[in-house]
Design a protein around this nucleic acid. Structure first.
Length: 272
DNA sequence: AGTGCGACCCGAACGC
DNA sequence: TGCGTTCGGGTCGCAC
């Protein structure tokens, strides 16, 4: 699920609910989610409190007193706020209990998500954060930056857009949408893109991500973001999951192919 | 070093 | 209806 717009939606919703409340208990029901030392994990969190929530790419970063808790939702991670004593769902793997008897519960059907604690002064030195590229919504994303990064990439542009070390935060849905809006064929080699095409990618990715954030992200299938928030950007998708439907621009049938192992939707006519 | 592909998991959707 | 198969909004590790 979570691409940049969904993670941003989660961040904003959680900020209203969990900041500055003392954590009195942490339950780990599936420990492989936690990448840092298990014993110190609960120890560090108990009696601590979340001061703020930041985001870098698809990483949620919970600020504590001396540490940051990094959380990556991967495919299906969600956070819910519930009350102590509420029935534990099968896939609620990590439970943070606050002093006021509310709980922050991490729910992850496929168990792909990750959490880890890092000391505050080490945040920008952690691999996961350090290697994140530039976000679509940043002014630092320029065509000269993209041209440089794409120069030696012998992969299709669709695959390059999913590379978090180049552009940080795009996922499979918005990569398809960006390429459609940019009129670029997903199979075109990244190294063959010109300045104009890079500029189109930058312009459309900004527009699409900002609109998606405004709409609270995308809800596909059963996925609702944390707290049961339902995004509405799916109403604006033009190609993703539209196989067999007519292209909104030319009427041609939208195709689905595999690129780099990922489902990729595009219009053969509009995206040469 | 860069690229490709299976692995990690599970449930929903699909095909017969 | 039932049962087996396929697929995925992400990333990592391993083989080449």
């Amino acid at each position: 699920m979570p691409e940049i717009a969904e993670v941003e939606t989660v961040r904003n919703s959680l900020k209203k609910r969990i900041l500055n409340k003392k954590i009195v208990d942490v339950k780990i029901r599936y420990s492989k989610i936690i990448e840092s030392d298990l014993n110190s994990f609960s120890k560090i969190l108990i009696n601590n409190e979340f001061k703020d929530i930041l985001r870098v790419g698809k990483w949620l970063i919970f600020e504590l007193n001396d540490y940051y808790l990094l959380s990556h939702l991967r495919m299906e991670g969600k956070f819910f706020i519930k009350n102590e004593g509420d029935v534990l769902e099968k896939h609620e793997h990590i439970i943070f209990t606050f002093e006021d008897k509310t709980e922050l519960r991490y729910h992850d059907t496929r168990k792909f998500g990750k959490m880890k604690l890092v000391k505050k002064d080490e945040l920008w030195d952690t691999e996961e954060i350090k290697k994140q590229g530039i976000e679509p919504i940043s002014d630092k994303l320029t065509s000269s930056y993209l041209l440089e990064k794409f120069k030696n990439k012998k992969v299709p542009i669709k695959t390059a857009l999913l590379d978090q070390e180049i552009i940080s935060g795009l996922g499979n849905i918005y990569a398809d949408e960006v390429l459609f809006a940019s009129k670029i064929n997903p199979l075109k080699m990244a190294s063959s893109l010109n300045d104009l095409e890079c500029k189109r990618i930058i312009k459309t990715s900004k527009e699409i991500i900002l609109k998606a954030i405004e709409m609270g992200g995308t809800t596909i299938r059963s996925y609702t973001s944390s707290l049961g928030v339902t995004g509405h950007y799916q109403d604006y998708l033009k190609v993703h999951k539209k196989e067999g439907k007519p292209c909104l621009v030319c009427g041609n049938i939208i195709k689905r192919i595999k690129v780099g192992g990922r489902s990729t939707y595009y219009c053969e006519y509009c995206q040469k």
